[in-house]
């Protein structure tokens, strides 16, 4: 089985995995991270989003073999070492922007990906950036409020 050296949340991780193994399974099963969630395995719902070189992308169909030297950040990697939350994480707590929270990982990662590119997005830009992400509890309006709050708190 090939060995892969991955850059995850600022450190190097070595995993033995078959090349077609999706990144999501490497993160959850091999590296025991909880952030990215299995939602569909079809890149349709956004629950499994991570940042790859700063861009929010799904990890459920992206093979470990395709990651190379890219920098991968998961939900765990957003807060600083002293435990201080990223402004987007903080805003989700303040707005209570969750019910079951299963989609929250993808919502936060997509929001951080958006703010990386556009630090001051308008409502339409926020909706566009989160179009990939499904929320069945339907807390969408709170999520939009949270992102607007994060923009202010940055």
């Amino acid at each position: 089985m090939p060995k892969y050296t991955l850059h995850i949340n600022g450190s190097e991780k070595v995993v033995d995995a078959e090349p077609e193994t999706p990144l999501l399974y490497v993160l959850r099963d091999y590296l025991e991270l909880n952030g990215p969630k299995f939602g569909c395995g079809l890149s349709q719902c956004g629950s499994c989003m991570v940042l790859v070189d700063g861009n929010a992308v799904t990890s459920c169909v992206r093979s470990v073999d395709s990651i190379g030297a890219s920098r991968v950040i998961t939900l765990e990697g957003l807060s600083s070492e002293n435990g201080k939350l990223h402004p987007v994480q903080e805003a989700f707590v303040e707005e209570q922007a969750a019910q079951c929270g299963y989609c929250l990982n993808g919502m936060v990662m997509a929001s951080v990906g958006l703010l990386n590119k556009n630090p001051n997005p308008g409502e339409e830009e926020i909706k566009d950036a989160l179009q990939m992400n499904l929320c069945r509890c339907s807390t969408h309006t709170r999520i939009i409020k949270a992102i607007k709050r994060a923009v202010k708190n940055q």
Binding site: L85, A98, G101, L104
Partner: peptide, 21 residues
Amino acid sequence: IPRTEIEKMVRAEAYYIQDMR
């Protein structure tokens, strides 16, 4: 009153059955 679970969720703590190891 805010729900305390939401902070656990944003911190990616083991909260869901899917996270149990």
